[in-house]
Every structure is written in structure tokens, then in C-alpha cells.
Amino acid sequence: MNLDFSQIVPYIPFMLEGIWATLKFVFFAIILGSILGTLLALFKIGSIKPLRWFADAYTSIFRGTPLILQLMIIYFSTPQLTGYDISAFLSAILAFGLNSSAYISEIIRAGIQAVDKGQTEAAQALGVPYRSMMKDIILPQALKNILPALMNEFITLTKESAIVSTIGYLDLMRRAQVVGADLFRNFEPLLFVGFIYWCLVMGLTMIGRVFERRLKQSD
């Protein structure tokens, strides 16, 4: 077997920098996806019809087309259409954030609808305004139920982030390819970043468990 990990040693710092590059845009994409997803979920359960249509159409488009296509459209068509030279970093945040929000909105919608209707009625009977009720009463309870599904989505996003290598963003994946091309050996660098991805996902899983435990306080 022709395996020699010693050859990638000089490239390890270069590849490790990819962790930061990946985490940076994944972090912002998760934030964008969560905020937008929550808004879309509220549109979907709300009583304003145009907003409901918008949220449904949005979800159908972003779930119905490949993520890599969305990424390329944002990266390549923005300069063509507007003249603005969008960076790979910003394209990645937008594509992943917008795409993820479609999935997150469905998760949150299901979570909200699973909260006992009596909670809404109790808050209404106390004269609590809709906004406060959603923020303080309904969403915290929904969050507890959907946390595992939400963590799933964040893990998927972290792994699928490797797609940004196709627009030349120097993330973990792209760096493994660069090293592979330099060395004429692909297996070792790919295995190396594969291990890093696994570590990142394990980290996320652990954070999720801590949150879950904290939310279970009231049981």
C-alpha cells in the first residue's frame, strides 16, 4: 500500500487554516438561516395570506433546487446582473443562509404547531401581546422539542459547506484539493480534512447536548 502521511506534514498549517475559513462562513450562515427561518415560520403560521404565500413559495424554490446551483447563481450572476463583484465569502453566507432558512422554517413551524394550543390561549387570556407571547412563551417551548432536528440541520450545513470549494473559496475541502494537486497524492490530505470535519461535527453535537440539558431544567 502506498500511503505516506509524513508528506503532508509541511501542509498541515495551511490545511488547518481552512478550519477557520469554513467555520467563519458556516457561523454566519447559521445565524442568517436561523433568523430568516424563524421569520418564515411565523409567516407560515400567521394569518396574513400574502406573507404565507411568500414563505411557501420561498421554501419550495430553495428546497426544490440544488444548493450548488444556488451558490453558483449567487456567485456568478451577481456581477453579471448588477456589476457588483461579490466575494466568494459573501456568496457562501448568502447561499447557505438562504437555503438553510427554508429547511429551518419547516422545522420551527412544526415545533410551534406542536406546542399545546392552551399555551396560546393562556397567554391571550392574560392580555399578553402576540410578539411577547411568541418570543417568551411559544418559541422557547417549541425550541425544546425541535432542538435535535435543528442540530441535524446545522450538522448538515457544516458538512455540505464543502461545496464552496467549487467557487474557489479556500475552505477545508478546497485546501485538501490544493495540497493533493501539489503532492500528486490525494488520499492523505482528503483523509486529513475528513477527520477535521468529523471533529467539527462532534463539537457541534456536544454543544447541542449541553443546550438540550439546559432546556430540560423544567422537567
Binding site: 399545546d116 387570556a125 392574560l126 392580555g127 422557547p140 425544546k144 432546556l215
Partner: peptide, 17 residues
Amino acid sequence: IRQEIGMVFQHFHLFPH
């Protein structure tokens, strides 16, 4: 108006969190 009307439900509906 609802703030002036208290309501008690059959199934309590306390906020569990």
C-alpha cells in the same frame, strides 16, 4: 380588555418552562 378578565382553564395551561 382581556387584562381585566382573568381566566382559569380546565387543564391549567401553566407555562411549563
